[in-house]
Amino acid sequence: MTPELTALFVARAGDHHAGVHPCTPAELPGLLATLLAGATAVVLPAGTPPQWTARLGPPTLPGDTLTATELDAPGLAVLTGCALAVAETGTLVLDGGAAQGRRLLTLVPDHHVCVVRAAQIVADVPDLVIALPDPTRPLTMISGPSATSDIELNRVEGVHGPRRLDIVCLPPG
């Protein structure tokens, strides 16, 4: 939760080739609108704060009723929050809670934008497993866009999950 942890998270998430965008609460609606401007529609899980969507251009779709095939429509993006994040590894952790939704929402669309508050960032994985409010919820740890190292052991982005991951990071306090 310290500024140091936030800085480490930003650097490490960037190492995974995610787009990382520190911003203030006032800048948030505008920044999200910019990041999502190219989407044909934006999928929103239940519990998305209204200020996140205040300035979005594309139409929004409620995440809780869409089928996998509907989520596979070209150009779709999804906007979520997260449960926690890990600084040391630049990892987002989703547990299906408010503003996160079902696991397939952050899997099938090709662009995922995730909002992280500094207070959600823990230092390392051992801190994460202790801090999780309920470990039996369906958990997804995301470290960068989908990738593979299966061809000559070189990391290549873009296999089955979202090929573009943007992380918006709100400061402490």
Binding site: R103, V125, T140
Partner: peptide
């Protein structure tokens, strides 16, 4: 909580990454 150590050890030893892109935990 044992996962804390093992999820640090596995990706670094295996693909040489601090963390692999996706880890799913389900119950």
């Amino acid at each position: 909580v044992d996962l804390g150590d093992f999820l640090r050890l596995l990706p670094r030893s295996s693909t040489g990454e601090r963390m692999n892109p996706y880890t799913s935990i389900f119950t």
